[in-house]
């Protein structure tokens, strides 16, 4: 059954990534150079809606709290995030959208995937030395949520009720999505004539 769900949800995810323009490096680049924030608005709205539905559903007992999977917070999350950010800006691809873009017919994305497979292998090869540095130092207790979610196996960074906080943050993120201007630099960057 979960394998069927993998096919259905995975296919839906791939199709939606393509339809929102996340498989288009032009739109990623224009989001990151702040000239076209439509994709940022899309992603923020999605996070906000997901958060409200998930935590709202948990409060009503309709969503299984055990399905939550919270990743650990440590120094390497920030450093790795920054590395990813540089490559994301250069290529216009992140791991998921790179694969989806290749599937959509972009050849440069195939090179991104090839580089990615090598990068992942390099991490496997260097994991032991990375672990010996301070990069795995936990932040705020590691696997924590901002509030304390009732029934979850994760600690809360604060004692605030985690599901209420989740719904509120969901609403805040949606409001940010609505209030974000489409172009933050107030000008259209002109493409030079060829």
């Amino acid at each position: 059954m979960t394998l069927i769900l993998a096919l259905v949800i995975g296919a839906a995810f791939g199709a939606v990534l393509d339809r929102i323009g996340a498989t288009n490096p032009d739109l990623i680049g224009k989001m990151l150079n702040l000239t076209n924030l439509n994709l940022a608005k899309t992603i923020l709205l999605a996070i906000g809606i997901g958060s409200m539905l998930m935590f709202g559903g948990q409060m009503l007992g309709l969503v299984d709290v055990a399905h939550m999977s919270v990743k650990s917070a440590y120094v390497g999350v920030f450093v790795g995030g920054a590395l990813l950010g540089v490559g994301w800006a250069v290529s216009g691809y992140c791991p998921g959208t790179g694969i989806a873009a290749a599937a959509a017919g972009r050849k440069d994305a195939l090179f991104f995937i090839a580089g990615g497979l090598l990068g992942a292998a390099a991490y496997m090869a260097t994991y032991t030395s990375v672990k010996a540095t301070g990069l795995m130092e936990k932040i705020g207790g590691g696997k924590v949520t901002l509030g304390t979610v009732p029934g979850a196996k994760y600690d809360g960074l604060t004692a605030v009720s985690g599901d209420i906080l989740g719904v509120i943050l969901g609403i805040v993120i949606i409001l940010v999505a609505y209030s974000l201007p489409e172009n933050m630099r107030g000008k259209t960057v002109i493409v030079a004539a060829e």
Binding site: G76, V77, F78, V79, G80, G81, A82, L83, L84, G85, V86, G87, W88, V90, S91, Y93, C94, P95, G98, F111, F112, I113, A114, G115, G116, L117, L118, G119, A120, A122, Y123, M124, V130, L135
Partner: peptide, 12 residues
């Protein structure tokens, strides 16, 4: 970029 992105993602 792919190399850097996946190395970073795994570190993170």
């Amino acid at each position: 970029a792919g190399f850097v992105v996946l190395y970073g993602a795994r570190l993170a």
